[in-house]
Structure formats: structure tokens, C-alpha cells
Nucleic acid binder design. Structure first.
Length: 491
RNA sequence: CGGGGCGUGGCGCAGUUGGCUAGCGUACUUGCAUGGGGUGCAAGGGGUCGCGAGUUCGAGUCUCGCCGCUCCGACCA
């Protein structure tokens, strides 16, 4: 249907890339690895932001903003943190340019060298904990529940639109607590919010659990995550919530007096989701005809397309469309009436289909006569003719139905692509031929995980929270194991 | 960093063993018709062929150097 557009089966990576560009979500910029997020793509991100921001605020968090730059010395305070991020930091060394002596442009002014280099944040734990030292004196100052919407830079070697870009947008929460227990609870509350958001808004089922030590965040005691499965059988980490213990409090000397008048280090969490979610949204639902967006995150939920020959017909249709638009908007539904005369109806049908608009209404002379409207849903591509009566409720129900149907479809896909494997041979075969999530026993050592990764490129995506205890043998070493973990190849 | 591919109107591409006025699709502008699944016809605007040097009567095409982009691997949300 779509012109010059590869199918998922032909070339999944190409399909994804072309989809992002042709659906006008984003494009590559003049800066290697950095994308320009275009209005339609940014609108999706804004909808995600709005939903998440409300969830954070409803659970007592407030937004704040910390600097883009971090003094280099901050990074060496927490040993494993610096180790994790050192290889991908952008560094600011000078603060001035001057005209080149040979008139060829501008050059860095060597006289304007910074005494201490500044790092463009790859994440903000260090600058935030350095700040928290001054904010926290007593248990009365706790808990401190802060979130920041920001951009960060990680100098990745290979990038892909939305999934991995050098600069990306995200939210990072940084909380401080009086007890270990309370910090762990916070980590779990956030994990719950992320999972809810993924399932109810993005219509993507996720597995909740822990990361293995190899995959743990640099500086964390425990990393919780939600893990989603994409249509090509690869896993996507969709959000992480870290219990940081007292690591950052110790590194930045953040102490408080507890109720017993004893000085103690503060307990910390950090958590984040990024514009990567937009990539996940695309990969989880879209098809060979283009984007498929869940109604709750679609920038345009309903598009109305007039079909007419004469100006008098258009006037009557426009009048009808305006009535529908008003009725739908009263119910909080975003509607676009595409009255452009420069494109034919067929062209518009394809355009909105490609852009994933959940519901399309078409109104022509025939409908005016019969008091009907043609309704097409994007998820199944089905068309039906509705009587105009009570149209706003019919469409509202349809949107709910589409949201639910997309979730069920994604859930069924995940279930069909989750395989229990018990031997090494089975593990390798399944990974090679089917992909997906592999439930397998693991002996719990980093060494084994590392070897499996080197041999198969599969990693432990998540140690599920709700896994039933089950005695078994590690698929690689045969050593005893108490529960299955989830392996997959990942983005 | 290792290995492939590519730089020609906005975008996607062709351009043969060097040859004459650099072409095609699409997009754009204008007009007429058309309009229930990417509409047709006609006219029109738009290009230092990535940059630099060389070979030659003549270079988009050959040689050398440089730059950029992109894909595949190790790294990562």
C-alpha cells in the first residue's frame, strides 16, 4: 500500500528507519548521532510527558531543574559510576572562539581554556547529590522527591533514531530517603508507574523485575526495570528504577540527623524513561502500512475527510464535520478536519493511515443523504458505516476498543514469542530461529551470563519479580538454579 | 576502532569503454479537468555533479589526497 516502503519481513531495521522519517516523526540532523524531532513526533513525546508528569505529581514528586554541565571532578567521586559513563562523555574544555588568523573562519581561543573541564551530563546523579548535601540536614527534610525533565548526552558509537541517539530527552527522578526500606519502596512505586504507563497508555505489555549485576546501572545497588518485546523478537528496556543505597550519599557526603539524633547517610533512588519510548511505541505496534498509534498517545485521534465534487457539497459536508468535531472535542477527543482542497480523498486516506491516526471518518454526499459517516479504524484497517446518531459516543467507544485491542494483540504476540527452554541446544536454536523471550535457568554468576552473551548476543533482560520458585539446572553450566530468568537479544 | 556502501536540482536515483545543451522519477509553481483509496493532461522554476590537486583538446566519468554520510560488529537507555 505505502509507496517505496519495505515490509517488516523484508528488512525490519530499514522498515523502522523509513517509518520514522516518512511518518514525519524525526530526521537526522547536521550533527552526527543527533536527531531533529519533528512536530508530529514531538507531539507523541509531549503526550507521554503529560501522562507521566501527572503520575509523578500524583505520587508526591515535584519537578526541578539542574545544570547541563557537571564539573569533571564530580564523576570520580563514585567509583563504579565513573567507570560506567567515562567512555561516553562529551567534554567542554573552552569557553570562547576567535577569528582564525588566516581568515578561514573561527577557531578555539586557547586563552579561554577552562581550569576544570565540564562534562555534559550523561545523567545527573552527581550534580544533584552534590546539591542535596545542602538541602538535607534532618529526617524532617526527607523524603525529597524530585524529578527533572531534561536532555542528556551519551557519546554512543552507533545511533538509531529514537532508540539510541547521542543526545536524548528524558525524565530523571532523584529521591532521598531516611531509610533503606523507604527508598526501596520508592523504587518499586516508580516501577509500578512505568509498567502502568507502558500497558495503559502505550498498550505494550511489560515484564517487571530486576537486572542482573552485569546489566545494573553504574552506581546502583539494585536496578529494577520494565522490559518489552518488539515485533522482531528483540527486547527493549523501556524504563529503569534504581535503588542506589547510600552510595551517592557517601560519595557526596549527604548526611542527616535521624529521630534518635544520630547522624546517618541518606538513602537514594533514581529512575528514568526517555524518548526511546517513542521508538518502542513504533516498533511494538506499527505495520507494513505505516504507523499504528494507540489512541491515548496519538497526536490526532480522529481525522475527518470530506469527499465532494462541488463547492455546495463541500459547504454542507464542512457543516456536518464541524458538528461532529465539536461533539467529539467535548468528550476530550482530538480531531482534525482536513479540508485541504489540494489533495484528493484517496491521498489523504493513505497519508493518515501511514501516520497512524486511530480513527478516520469520511463524509461524502452519500452520507449526507443517509445521515451516516464512514468509519475506518487503523489497528485492523476495518471500515464500517455508522448512523450519525450519538456519533460522539460511538467514536469514543471505538477509541477505547482500539486501545484495548492493541494491548491484547501485543500481549498475544509476547505470549507466542516467550519460550521455556531447558537445554543449551534448545536455547541456541530458539534464539536463532524464533527469537523472543527465553525463560531459562541460570546459575546466578556474572561469568556465565558473560559467556552466554559472548556466544549468543543474548543477555538476561530481567529477573522477573513474580517468578515462581522452581528448582532447575543452569542451561550453560548445569549448576543448580532456583528460578527462571528472561534472556533475549536486546536493543 | 575494524569491515562494506554512498556523495549528481528539496528528496530518491540514472549517467556505458572520458565527448557535444547533465537526464529521469518525485516534490514544487500555474492552468484546466478530476474527486468514495496515493487523479489526469499541459506549461514552468530549480543543479559550483562533496572538496582540492592532477592527467587530457575535453572530466560527473580516469588518478591521488581530503571531507562527510550511512550500514554491519565491539559499547549503551
Amino acid at each position: 500500500m505505502a509507496k517505496d516502503f519495505p515490509t517488516r519481513a523484508e528488512n525490519y531495521a530499514q522498515w523502522y528507519n523509513d517509518l520514522v522519517i516518512k511518518a514525519d516523526l524525526a530526521e537526522n540532523s547536521a550533527v552526527r548521532g543527533c536527531m531533529v524531532i519533528k512536530p508530529y513526533g514531538y507531539a507523541i513525546w509531549e503526550k507521554m510527558q503529560a501522562a507521566l508528569d501527572k503520575m509523578f505529581k500524583d505520587t508526591g514528586h515535584m519537578n526541578a531543574y539542574f545544570p547541563l554541565f557537571i564539573p569533571k571532578s564530580f564523576f570520580s567521586r563514585e567509583a563504579s559510576h565513573v567507570e560506567g559513563f567515562a567512555k561516553e562523555c562529551a567534554v567542554v574544555t573552552h569557553y570562547r572562539l576567535k577569528s582564525a588568523p588566516d581568515g578561514s573562519g573561527v577557531v578555539v581561543d586557547e586563552d579561554a581554556k577552562l581550569d576544570e573541564e565540564l562534562i555534559i551530563r550523561p545523567t545527573s546523579e552527581t550534580i544533584i547529590w552534590d546539591t542535596y548535601r545542602n538541602w538535607i540536614q534532618s529526617y524532617r527534610d526527607l523524603p525529597l522527591l524530585i524529578n527533572q525533565w531534561a536532555n542528556v548526552v551519551r557519546w554512543e558509537m552507533r545511533t538509531r533514531l529514537f532508540l539510541r541517539t547521542t543526545e536524548f530527552l528524558w525524565q530523571e527522578g532523584h529521591t532521598a530517603h531516611a531509610t533503606s526500606q523507604e527508598a526501596i519502596e520508592e523504587t518499586e512505586i516508580i516501577l509500578g508507574i512505568y509498567a502502568d504507563f507502558a500497558e495503559k497508555w502505550m498498550a505494550i505489555p511489560v515484564l517487571k523485575g530486576f537486572k542482573s549485576p552485569n546489566e545494573r546501572f553504574a552506581g546502583a545497588v539494585e536496578t529494577y526495570c520494565i522490559e518489552a518485546l518488539m515485533q522482531d523478537g528483540k527486547a527493549l528496556q523501556a524504563g529503569t528504577s534504581h535503588f542506589l543505597g547510600q552510595n551517592f550519599a557517601k560519595a557526596f557526603d549527604v548526611k542527616f540527623l535521624n529521630r534518635n539524633n544520630e547522624l546517618d547517610y541518606v538513602w537514594a533512588t533514581s529512575w528514568g524513561v526517555s524518548t526511546r519510548l517513542v521508538g518502542g511505541l513504533i516498533m511494538a505496534h506499527s505495520d507494513d502500512n505505516g504507523l499504528v498509534l494507540p489512541p491515548k498517545l496519538a497526536p490526532i485521534q480522529v481525522v475527518i475527510i470530506p469527499i465532494y465534487k462541488k463547492p455546495e457539497q463541500f459547504a454542507a459536508i464542512a457543516d456536518k464535520a464541524a458538528q461532529i468535531k465539536t461533539a467529539l472535542e467535548k468528550k476530550g477527543i482530538s480531531v482534525k478536519f482536513d479540508d485541504r482542497d489540494s489533495f484528493t480523498p484517496g491521498w489523504k486516506f493513505n497519508e493518515y493511515e501511514f501516520k497512524g491516526v486511530p480513527v478516520r471518518l469520511a463524509i461524502g454526499p452519500r452520507d449526507l443523504e443517509n445521515d451516516t459517516v464512514e468509519v475506518a479504524r487503523r489497528d485492523t484497517l476495518e471500515k464500517a458505516v455508522y448512523q450519525m446518531t450519538d456519533i460522539e459516543n460511538k467514536v469514543a467507544n471505538l477509541l477505547d476498543n482500539i486501545q484495548e485491542n492493541m494491548y491484547q494483540k501485543a500481549l498475544a504476540f509476547r505470549e507466542n514469542n516467550t519460550h521455556q527452554v531447558d537445554t543449551w541446544e534448545e536455547f541456541c536454536n530458539t534464539l536463532e530461529n524464533k527469537g523472543g523471550f527465553l525463560l531459562a535457568h541460570w546459575d546466578g554468576t556474572s561469568e556465565t551470563e558473560q559467556i552466554i552473551k559472548e556466544e549468543t548476543k543474548a543477555t538476561i533482560r530481567v529477573i522477573p519479580l513474580d517468578a515462581k520458585p522452581e528448582a532447575g539446572k543452569c542451561i550453560y553450566t548445569g549448576h543448580p538454579s532456583k528460578q527462571r530468568v528472561v534472556f533475549a537479544r536486546a536493543y
